[in-house]
Design a protein around this nucleic acid. Structure first.
Lengths: 314, 314
DNA sequence: GTTATGTATAGGTTATTATCTATAGGTTTT
DNA sequence: AAAACCTATAGATAATAACCTATACATAAC
């Protein structure tokens, strides 16, 4: 029995012969000629090394070996049918995996989309990677994930990016801070206080620093902290002031005051980024399509900025 | 996903790629060149319509679709392995079917071989057909069975016959019969009494009648009966005399006397007959080989006549 | 920066496969 | 006895599969 000389076509023909009980009928059913079917069966028998059917007095009988092979074939084709079903689910985005790498801040907003999506597609795995900007960029370079989420457009080769949400930045001070009482203040005023900042690569920090630079301002004092949480808590306890994404701010925190800063409309955007040189997985495409159609529903509609059509998802 | 363009070879190569995690390693393992393996995988992916592996930075990863296909392949090859095992058993004669058609009288002797054989090969089906000579001949013509058992060599096309047991015929009379007392009698003497005979096709009757004819004798009276059992009982009760296979006679039946008939050595043989124009099933071959080596063990050694080597079983 | 390692692509050869038509030889039916 | 039906065989062809060598192009290792 040499599998190498057996093709699925051969098995298909054989199964039809067993089912119809006739070589001629099979030929008609499969739109072949009778000699073709005869030959196929002959070749299959040679490959198996055992007679599979017997023909006597125009009556075709299936041998033990033939019957067993038939059953084997049924199972095998069943197996492949299952696989085809699996593929269909995969292609429909109902199954599969969509790896997403996002910068720290995104974890305050992306779950609002991921949660509902995951409920609707329970068989899609959604492994998340969260890191700072540099880490996520490195992952992008190596192509480790399906979707990347940045807040600052990375201008890279092989990248396609689309904005989906505004990321308004707010200045916060402790509620007992001298500026907390003012109805409005200026950026210059703020630079007199100690700023609590994320690491240099951070999108928020980059945006903030370029804003300072364009106005010729310099911070008098700053402290670097590893997370937005840490910064928030530190501001609460009076360590300094900070600029943070609005999405990070909890509502109704009495110990923090959000300032209104004149002439400053610091705002970046959240981007979904994909690689153009790699096939987008079906699940990833499915998630992005879901996002495209449900941004307003699951995110704060005021900040939504739906440019996902730019990803050419269809 | 088009199965027609997928061969088992292709799947084998793919499985090796998944196992080794490398195209080059697979090439070395399967004694192929690397471009060959690359191409095979490419073709498989085209046939499936889905990427199965991803290669980035010389690291090969298997996609969801690839992993699922791999598992499907494992099952499929497992299925064929099972089938191979089945074939091996079939070929070893441990499994399968051996249809035997025998003339009525043979049912007194063949079970002595069939019983032990069946015990040693519990997975071999042994359907038996029992009929009179004409019926068994008809089955032979149509090739309905694997082995035929006759007691009279059928001289047919496509038949190969081998004797395995003598079939001595005995003359029996009721114990109160006039001839019962005689130490020896003659065939001519016996023709004066009413003979109970099987139907004309029966081997016993044919042999007996040709013996009569060669000696120019004619029966004065005869009655036809359908079975050996019926004849024996009829003789017991005094209806007439008969000639029967020794194998049919029960030992120690007081109501019947076996005669010693001078000048008459009526004896035929039991034959295994197979068709030369059809493959002998493995089980049938196995049974005949068993018979060849165990005739003396399970049949009365005095009558054994082992010529089964003439069937060329090996 | 050179060298090894791993993969992809192009181009070519040979064997095999999947078909066909035509024909022959059996059975069964009419 | 002829007609109808089934299967087997021979011979031919076009497509495909399964390989190869040579080469190019990345990435990783030294």
């Amino acid at each position: 029995m040499d599998l190498r000389h057996i093709s699925f076509r051969l098995l298909e023909v054989f199964m039809s012969v067993v089912k119809t009980g006739s070589i001629s009928k099979t030929a008609r059913a499969l739109h072949l000629t009778q000699p073709t079917v005869s030959l196929q069966i002959k070749r299959l028998q040679e490959a198996v090394g055992e007679p599979l059917i017997l023909i006597q007095q125009q009556k075709l009988t299936v041998t033990e070996a033939g019957l067993a092979l038939f059953r084997t074939c049924q199972q095998v084709f069943g197996q492949f049918d299952d696989y085809k079903d699996f593929l269909a689910e995969l292609r429909g985005g109902e199954r599969g995996r969509c790896k997403i790498a996002m910068v720290n801040t995104a974890q305050y907003i992306l779950p609002k989309l991921l949660g509902p999506y995951s409920n609707m597609h329970p068989h899609v795995e959604l492994p998340l990677e969260i890191g700072n900007r540099a880490e996520v960029l490195a992952r992008f370079e190596r192509g480790e994930d399906d979707i990347y989420v940045f807040s600052h457009p990375p201008s890279l080769e092989h990248a396609k990016a689309a904005r989906f949400l505004q990321n308004p930045l707010e200045f916060i001070v402790p509620s007992e801070h001298p500026l907390a009482a003012a109805t409005e203040t200026t950026l210059a005023e703020l630079t007199n206080y100690r700023f609590l900042l994320r690491e240099p690569g951070s999108a928020t920090r980059m945006l903030f620093e370029s804003e300072l630079q364009s106005r010729g301002l310099v911070l008098s004092d700053s402290v670097q902290m590893a997370s937005n949480e840490a910064i928030r808590v530190a501001v609460s306890s009076g360590m300094g002031v900070a600029v943070l994404s609005r999405h990070v701010l909890p509502k109704g925190d009495e110990s923090i005051k959000v300032l209104s800063v004149s002439e400053s409309q610091l705002a970046s955007h959240w981007y979904f980024v994909i690689r153009t040189d790699r096939h987008l997985s079906h699940a990833a495409r499915s998630f992005l399509q879901f996002a495209e159609h449900n941004l307003e529903r699951f995110l704060d509609a005021r900040w939504v900025c739906n440019e996902l059509h730019g990803l050419d998802l269809n």
